[in-house]
């Protein structure tokens, strides 16, 4: 039976004369290089020009226009007809590209989340606008942020005229954000590295709280540090992918309501038969 099987193989003989083994092997590596090159060519061209700021400002405005136009569509889920003018205005002012690492700077004005190192991300701009809008921040509001991350959300809140207190548990990330916010002139943001579970007692209560740090539950101490009439927003989901937002509202008499909000207009059931 072995001979029978053997019959199948001789035919392989006498093929590929003069073709060297090494030559063939290199084909494999060449194709890899090609893939990398193809990948690189897909990447967006960098704004190498001297007018980088202008380039960014234009890209930012386009992004903000897109986001503003989306708000109306999600009215039913979010209860907002449109994002408030103030939110849209600050989104057009805060330079998001300053808050992301060099290697993803060109993508700063895409409407997408970006990695910022340390396993953390900067949220999708649309989600930032939505959360900020839900917080309903006024000039002079005291806002607590748990999870500073890049500092972008804090800058947005500060630009709205709020006094921002922000806590980060990852030390180097907190340091980076602190320096960045200082360099960009956000004097009304106070940063701290540490545990955010108990909020920031010295400055409590707050008009608004935003919790971007992952947690297995809404920390009760934070609910207690919310002023009557205040609001707390926390995104729920994986990194890069926000599934829904939890909003806690404290009424004037101290009663607490929680709301789960989908960021998009999405009805899980098709129309009918």
């Amino acid at each position: 039976m072995q001979n029978r099987l053997a019959k199948s193989f001789p035919s392989i003989r006498a093929r590929g004369r003069g073709r060297r083994l090494t030559g063939w092997l290199w084909c494999g590596f060449d194709s890899r290089c090609l893939l990398v090159l193809a990948g690189l060519s897909l990447a967006v061209g960098s704004p190498f020009t001297a007018n980088a700021q202008e380039y960014y400002a234009k890209a930012r405005q386009e992004l903000v226009d897109t986001i503003a136009s989306m708000a109306a569509e999600t009215q039913r889920e979010t209860g907002r007809k449109a994002f408030s003018e103030a939110v849209i205005k600050v989104m057009a002012e805060v330079p998001r590209h300053e808050f992301v690492p060099e290697n993803v700077r060109d993508l700063a004005y895409r409407n997408r989340p970006l990695p910022i190192g340390y396993g953390q991300t900067i949220s999708q701009p649309y989600i930032v606008a939505l959360m900020t809008d839900l917080l309903d921040v006024q000039i002079g509001s005291k806002v607590l942020e748990v999870g500073t991350g890049s500092g972008y959300q804090a800058a947005i809140l500060a630009e709205l005229g709020a006094k921002v207190f922000t806590i980060e548990i990852i030390e180097p990330l907190g340091q980076l954000a602190k320096e960045r916010l200082k360099r960009l002139g956000y004097g009304n943001v106070k940063t701290r590295v540490g545990d955010g579970y108990y909020g920031w007692k010295e400055h409590a209560p707050f008009d608004a709280i935003i919790v971007t740090a992952a947690a297995s539950h809404v920390p009760p101490p934070l609910v207690r540090q919310l002023k009557p009439g205040g609001r707390m927003v926390a995104p729920v989901g994986e990194r890069f992918l926000v599934q829904y937002l939890t909003m806690v509202e404290k009424s004037v008499d101290g009663g607490v309501t929680l709301r789960h909000i989908l960021p998009v207009r999405f009805v899980p059931l098709t129309g009918g038969h």
Binding site: T66, I67, M70, E73, T74, N111, Q124, Y126, I127, L130, G237, E238, F240, L241, V242, Q243, Y244, L262, P263, V264, R265, F266
Partner: peptide, 16 residues
């Protein structure tokens, strides 16, 4: 449907 809604956070509603 969610791909079309990606700008509004649609991807978060999907298992990948």
């Amino acid at each position: 449907e969610l791909y079309a809604l990606r700008g509004r956070g649609g991807f978060g509603l999907l298992e990948w």
